[in-house]
Computed example of a mutant assay.
Amino acid sequence: MMKWAAELSLLFVALIWGVTFVVVQQAIEFLPPLLFNGIRFSFAAFLLFGLILFRKEAVKLTAKTWKHGMILGVCLAIGYAFQTIGLLYTTVSKTGFITGLSVVLVPLLSLILLKKRPAPNAAIGSVTAAAGLYLLTAGGAGGWNIGDFFVLICAFGFAFHIIFTDAYTQYSSALALTAVQITTVAVLCFIGGFLLEDWQTSLTAANLLNPAVWSGLLITAFLATALAFFIQTAAQKHTSPTRVVLILAMEPVFGALTAFFWINERLAAAGLTGCILIFFGMLLAEIPVHKWLHTKSITNKP
């Protein structure tokens, strides 16, 4: 895979994830969030394990892979569960941009947990994104609500997932690690759904055969989960982590555009300004400005 093809495929992943915010919001009007995610990730897990068997890679499902995959799965489960629950109470646009804060949270959590001092651009990006979050939630689109809080928890879940993924991918097969974590998400969401949600009423033929539900499950399971994670894993071998994050930062933009054109969801001026600040904060957090300036200063020396 050439570099341009890898980066174009990552942009396609960002588009898929952005579009599915609307798809999921419509589906969970009929099926509770945790049960929806349980079914979604089960479909994806069956597909991934089928691919492992087809490629005869079952031997790569080592004890370490299961351990690391389950840790990653817990982080993903927190992220997807709270994101989906949050969509019950807040808008698609706000969900997309608050979720995107995970990019900014990574350097901050790395400082706390790993004692890795963030670069100046990451610190500036964090402050910019925090200001955008305030405008988006407190100043626009109905103000701060419980759904925004749930999505903020989701952003922390995805941030921890990024940190742990960086630590674990060198020890396991990418496909095997992905399959284990997707399976873990499915199991945890099913447990939560059966314990906390009214599954007896929800799991009916009428709900499951509703076009918004079955189409949402198929789109998210195969496109937004199995295919998207597989593409991301393969493409990252041909481009830099910085460019990966920058490209995937387009996800909330695609989400907001989809919400605007599909369900006519509009943001107030303050909310729109907040989205712009969060987006630029995400970019600042990943662009190595300090390295460019350092290189430029050396080049310009007499």
Rank of each mutant, 00 (worst) to 15 (best):
A5E: 11
A6G: 07
E7F: 02
L10I: 02
Q25Y: 05
Q25V: 00
Q26R: 14
P32Q: 10
L34W: 08
R40H: 06
A45E: 07
F46E: 11
F49T: 00
A58H: 14
L61E: 06
T65V: 09
W66A: 12
G69Y: 03
V74L: 15
A81Y: 09
Q83E: 05
G86R: 02
L87F: 05
V92E: 00
V92R: 03
I98Q: 01
S102C: 14
V103G: 09
P107W: 05
S110E: 15
I112F: 14
V127D: 07
L133E: 05
L135M: 13
G139M: 12
V151K: 01
A155H: 05
S173G: 07
L177R: 02
Q181M: 02
I182Q: 04
I182W: 09
T184D: 10
A186H: 04
V187C: 06
C189L: 12
L195N: 07
S202M: 06
A205E: 10
A206E: 15
L209M: 12
T220E: 04
T233L: 15
A234G: 12
R243N: 15
V244P: 05
P252S: 06
A256G: 11
A259E: 06
E265H: 06
A270D: 13
G271D: 10
F279H: 03
G281W: 02
I287H: 06
H290S: 15
S297R: 14
